[in-house]
């Protein structure tokens, strides 16, 4: 029993003024413990919807999601989520943000303190522990958000385009950092992105999704050795293949947008 996340027969529909949108259709996916999986696709392909369903924020209309053998019915600290918008609590200092999950678990103050200190050190945030989020850059904030989730010691990390709002250099250094943490701590990671390069750089498996209805178009295992070199011919071959897969979905997405605007 080494599956971490099992998604079987999941459908998700949303009612809208223009009719029912099928966001997810017949999704079946099995993720092993310690695997790093990227969900890749254009916006509107349902990759965030799928992530939110695993997180328990918005349950599937049909089908079942199991995490470590338990059906998902609500959000929980066993599936830590990192949001693109950081979602740090601005009224808490960096240390308070990182320790909040432990406070909720009612750990003794001294334990929280030492755990938080260790995590801040791991993410090179120690000197900012008493600062408020507004004093930090985007990259620093996302480090804090990652530390906050790691504090929970959850076996699964869910990441919703976590580096999408960062500049290229910061993004790259956080990707390195994430890989280091992932290999050190052996977490299962489900990572949503629309960046092909990011997915090749990070993932063991890349799950390409189609635009409405959101289905799994292809499930690709990445076997390139780590650390991955984005200049290598193998990297670029995979990048070209994925580009083709994604761009036809992107074209459908743009078509749909254009139609929606002209019929309005």
């Amino acid at each position: 029993m080494d599956s971490s996340i099992v998604i079987s027969g999941v459908n998700k529909t949303f009612p809208t003024p223009h009719g029912v949108v099928v966001a997810l259709q017949d999704i079946n996916l099995e993720i092993r413990k310690g695997e790093f999986v990227c969900l890749l696709g254009p916006s509107g392909c349902g990759k965030s919807t799928l992530l939110n369903a695993v997180a328990g924020f918005s349950l599937p209309s049909q089908g079942l999601i199991k995490v470590n053998g338990q059906a998902v019915t609500q959000p929980g600290p066993d599936r830590g989520m990192v949001f693109q918008e950081y979602a740090l609590f601005p009224w808490m200092t960096v240390a308070q943000n990182v320790g909040f999950g432990l406070e909720i678990k009612k750990l003794p103050k001294a334990d929280i303190r030492s755990r938080v200190d260790a995590l801040l050190k791991l993410l090179k945030l120690s000197e900012f522990s008493e600062r408020f989020p507004r004093d930090l850059s985007g990259g620093m904030r996302q480090r804090v958000a990652i530390a906050r989730i790691l504090a929970l010691d959850s076996p699964i990390l869910l990441m919703d385009e976590p580096f999408g709002a960062l500049d290229a250099l910061t993004r790259r250094s956080l990707q390195d950092e994430l890989l280091r943490i992932w290999s050190e701590l052996g977490k299962t990671v489900l990572f949503v992105t629309h960046s092909i390069e990011e997915s090749i750089f990070l993932a063991d498996r890349i799950v390409v999704m189609t635009y409405r209805p959101g289905t799994i178009k292809q499930d690709i295992r990445v076997t390139l050795p780590r650390p991955r070199d984005s200049a290598s011919p193998e990297f670029n071959k995979l990048k070209r293949d994925l580009s083709e897969l994604v761009s036809s979905e992107q074209a459908r997405h743009e078509d749909a947008e254009r139609r929606a605007l002209t019929t309005d």
């Binding site: 997180a55 924020f57 609500q74 959000p75 929980g76 600290p77 599936r79 830590g80 989520m81 949001f83 918008e85 979602a87 740090l88 609590f89 909040f100 999950g101 909720i104 678990k105 906050r148 929970l152």
Partner: peptide, 16 residues
Amino acid sequence: GIFLRAARNLGASRST
């Protein structure tokens, strides 16, 4: 709403 989602994700109860 993202603060509420983040808090629920951390396991916070309604009163927390």
